[in-house]
Design a protein around this nucleic acid. Structure first.
Lengths: 157, 157
DNA sequence: TATTGTTATACTCTATAACTATA
DNA sequence: TATAGTTATAGAGTATAACAATA
């Protein structure tokens, strides 16, 4: 009668287990990257030129703006990203990845592919793709518009 | 060229956004329940009689054993659960939900169903079920065996 | 006056280790 | 000696608020 534990029907429980499992699995790969998983996400955005302002990036990544400051401090100290005043609004900082940062991102991304496959390993291949798609769809729609700078839309960044 | 942000292909990013989204959405419902989302999970397990020992429960829920102590302290102070020494091993505590706790759980579970639907709202109905199934499948397999007490199996709990 | 980013402070959460009681 | 649980302490992580520069 205990064959199907009650917690398992809780979406929050499943999400938590999977999320923690991913973070734990990615720890090895992201350990020496400043900021860990979040540093990786910032570096990704900086490389893709999506870092219009620290604040919009912070919102997109689900972080506090003060955390974003520390995070970028560390990444900049390691020579992975640079920030300079936005000529159009000198209060804001434009974030960009250095060549070193881009190379580092490429390596890390490659390693993370392996981690993701490892985390999703209990599922069959088509299920893995399905889960990826569903999560991405949910994340993008629940979060905010697709355009990274669409919130305060004075210019396309 | 900025139409598909780079972070969005990162499984970790999607998981984080969805997980945080769920936690935020559930906050209202779980605010006055001691321990929040984790208190809810403990209460669920206690009601279902899956709380063979605090330690196995802690592992199942992804918590430290010390955190489990505080969590149960709060739930017990609120009269939702009880713990008493396991007659078969008086070092361990058997956790059970009180009648008040069971009633509270029923209410909360009902409210959470609504929250889950709200979180999954961006998906079509069949996609929602699919995502639930995939997450549960992944969580149960990645976590540990189905039997809640299968780790140290001296007796079936 | 409002906003971006920084800094300083305080608070919460979590992990570590020491302790008790049982085995 | 080893384990379940508790307690105390310390550390990391996080949020709050005050500040500087720019709009």
């Amino acid at each position: 009668m205990v064959s199907t534990p009650a917690v398992e029907s809780d979406l929050g429980w499943a999400l938590g287990v999977v999320f923690r499992g991913y973070v734990r699995a990615a720890e090895g790969v992201l350990a020496d990257l400043p900021g860990g998983p979040r540093g990786y996400q910032v570096l990704t955005s900086a490389t893709a030129g999506e870092a219009c302002s620290q604040q919009t990036l912070a919102h997109r990544l689900g972080l506090d703006k003060t955390v974003m400051t520390y995070l970028i401090d560390d990444l900049e100290r390691s020579g992975l990203v640079e920030r300079r005043p936005d000529p159009a609004d000198r209060r804001a900082r434009l974030l960009s990845a250095t060549d070193v940062g881009k190379a580092r991102l490429a390596e890390t991304t490659e390693s993370l592919r392996g981690v993701e496959e490892q985390v999703l390993a209990p599922l069959a291949a088509p299920e893995r793709d399905l889960l990826r798609d569903l999560l991405r769809k949910l994340a993008t729609r629940q979060d905010n518009p697709v355009d990274p700078c669409a919130e305060a839309e004075p210019r396309p960044c």
